[in-house]
Design a protein around this nucleic acid. Sequence first.
DNA 1: ATGAGGTCTTAAGATACCTTAATTGTTTTC
DNA 2: GAAAACAATTAAGGTATCTTAAGACCTCAT
Lengths: 190, 190
Amino acid sequence: MPDSILKNIAKHIHLSEEEAALFSTLASVKTLPKKTLLLQAGQECRHLSYVHSGALRSFYIDKDGKESTIMFAVADWWITDMYCYLNRKPAMTHIETIEESMIFQISRSNFDHLLETIPKFERFFRILMQNAYTREQLRVMENLSLTAEERYHSFVQKYPQIVRQVTKKQIASYLGITPEFLSTLKKPEI
Amino acid sequence: MPDSILKNIAKHIHLSEEEAALFSTLASVKTLPKKTLLLQAGQECRHLSYVHSGALRSFYIDKDGKESTIMFAVADWWITDMYCYLNRKPAMTHIETIEESMIFQISRSNFDHLLETIPKFERFFRILMQNAYTREQLRVMENLSLTAEERYHSFVQKYPQIVRQVTKKQIASYLGITPEFLSTLKKPEI
DNA sequence: ATGAGGTCTTAAGATACCTTAATTGTTTTC
DNA sequence: GAAAACAATTAAGGTATCTTAAGACCTCAT
C-alpha cells in the first residue's frame, strides 16, 4: 500500500503504526484503465475511493440523456456517490476514470468497522465531510450569483490541475453550460 | 434549556445525563424578533445555531447587490456560515430571522471543547456534515439538470414547511430566479 | 384609519445561453 | 496507418429567463 493515502489521513489525525496497519488491511488497491466505469447508476454503491493517481469523474444522466458532472477527483481526492454509499440506496450517479488511475477503496462494511475500531476516524471523516460540504455550498453560491464566464474563470483558478486532466466538454458539463457556449467565452488568464 | 435540541442530538448519539448537562452549559438560548440580523458578512462568525422555533435564512449579496439565499433554517435545523465558522474567516453571508425565533447557540471555542470532552460529538457532527453535504450535492445536481419550474416543484415537495414560513421572493432567490419569473410558473400540486 | 413600504402579479422588450449544423483537428481502434 | 469516433470551434436562429415598469394587495408603524 503506497503511503499517499496515509499521508492524506495524517493531515488531520495521527495514527499509530498498528492503526495504520489495520487501516491498510481494510483498504484495497485497484489500477483501472482509462474510461472504466467504476459505478453505474442504479447499482448499490459499495465503495469509497481515494485517488492515488489519474483522474475520475462522477456524473448524473437526466431523463433527457443530458450529462451533468457532479465532481472530478484527481490525485489526493476522495470520491463516491456519498448519499447512496452512506444510506445503502441505489446510486444516482455514474463514476468513471478519465485516464488510467490507481485508487484505494474502502467498502461500506470496512468503513463502519473502521469507525468503531478507531474512533479517531470519526474525526477524520467529520473533517472530510465538513470540507466537502463547504465546497459544495460555495459552488451553489457561485451557481446562483456568477455568470457562466465568471464561473469558468473561478474554476480554472481554483482547480488548475483538473483543467490539465479533463476535456473542456467535461468542464462545461460541470459548470452547467454547453461546450459550444464555453467555446465562445473569453479565455481566462492562467 | 428546552429539550428539542437534546432530542435532535439523540437521533444520532446517546448522551448520559452528565454529558447532556455539560452540553447544556455550553449552549446559550436566544429569542430574537423578526428581521434581526444574526450575522453580517465581513464579521467573524462565532456561533453555530440550532433553531428551536421560528425561521432564519442565510444569504449572500454579490457585487451588484443581488441577494442569493444559501439556506433556510426552520425548527430543528442547524445554521451558520460553516466555512467561516470552522476556519475563523470573515463571514461571506448574512444570517437573519424571517420571523420571531428561539435559537440555541454554540460558540466556536465551546464547540472545540465539546469535541474534546465528549468524543461522541465527533460522530454527531460527522453525521450532521454528511447530511449537509449530500443535501448540497443534490441541490447542485438539480441546479444543473432541472428547469426553474422543476426546481420550484421539487422545493415545494421537499420543504412544504419552509414554503409556509417564507415569502415567494425568498424562495426565488434560493432557486436562482427572479420573483417575477417565479410568478409566471405553473403552481405545483400540494 | 392612513400612509409608506414591501410583496405579488402581469406584460413587453432585452439578453444569456441553447440547439443545430458544419468544419477542423485530435484520439482511438482495428 | 487508415478509418472511425470524438473534441473543439464558429455561426445562425431559438428559448428560458431577466429587466423594467406598473398596478393591486398586504402589513405594519404612526
